[in-house]
């Protein structure tokens, strides 16, 4: 028992240090020693929170967040974890629909956001790159997301993002979905111009904003994969 406690602390530390091999090896040992998959997930979560804090204090950077996301996925792939979480419904805190707006084929920012949002308990529906506004509208109707994420790298995406927001408004959907724009070039002025509810210059702050929104809405639970 004492050993398991100590192991738990070490797992959190190893996640924080982004020691991939260390985390996997100790997580496997802990599962063999009888730790509950849900408890292990909490520990990994705690480690991820610390990584997030190090990111905010500018000791870690995007490359480190990508590594953290990878470790999270590695742990979920461990046999006992996969078996457990496949059988039970995982609780999702909200649904995000994301896509890169028309004219832009970049997907890396969207990919990083997606994996971080999933690690934070969101169900994420990714509708791809160079997405026309009509497709955003029809997929919002179809999937009823809590949040719509518009991604873009190129400077001209400000215009394309505004067109999506206008199309969502014209379709009478604006009040049913919160909209966040993501891109390194965005500013508060650009966000106002687009008509989004918020914007983020990186994946981490975008996910944080989405969490805040869901938190303030009372945090409904959505069943995923059913």
């Amino acid at each position: 028992m004492e050993d398991l406690k100590k192991m738990e602390g070490t797992i959190i530390d190893l996640v924080e240090q982004l020691d991939e091999e260390g985390v996997i090896s100790l997580a496997s040992q802990a599962l063999d020693a009888g730790i509950q998959p849900l408890r292990l997930l909490e520990l990994i979560d705690e480690g991820m929170n610390r990584v997030g804090q190090l990111y905010e204090s500018k000791e870690y950077f995007i490359a480190d967040l990508i590594m953290a996301g990878l470790i999270f996925k590695d742990v979920l792939k461990l046999e006992k974890m996969a078996a457990h979480f496949q059988r039970s419904y995982s609780k999702r805190i909200g649904k995000i629909l994301i896509g890169t707006v028309k004219g832009d084929i970049h997907d890396i920012g969207k990919e990083i956001f997606r994996s971080m949002a999933e690690a934070n308990g969101f169900e994420v529906i990714d509708i791809g790159v160079d997405v026309p506004k009509e497709l955003f509208v029809s997929r919002v109707v179809e999937n009823k997301p809590d949040i719509l994420g518009l991604s873009g790298v190129l400077t001209n995406t400000i215009e394309a993002m505004r067109e999506v927001v206008e199309a969502i408004t014209r379709a009478g959907l604006r009040d049913s979905v919160r909209i966040i724009a993501g891109g390194n070039h965005l500013t508060e002025d650009a966000c106002r111009f687009i008509g989004a509810d918020s914007y983020a210059n990186d994946a981490s702050s975008g996910v944080k904003r989405c969490r805040d929104w869901i938190g303030s809405a009372g945090g409904k639970e959505v069943r995923a994969d059913d």
């Binding site: 028309k102 004219g103 832009d104 970049h106 997907d107 160079d130 026309p132 001209n156």
Partner: peptide, 13 residues
């Protein structure tokens, strides 16, 4: 280097 739907050539991952 790949063209987007608007004709703009871009560098994807």
């Amino acid at each position: 280097f790949v063209m987007g739907s608007n004709g703009f050539i871009q560098h994807p991952e």
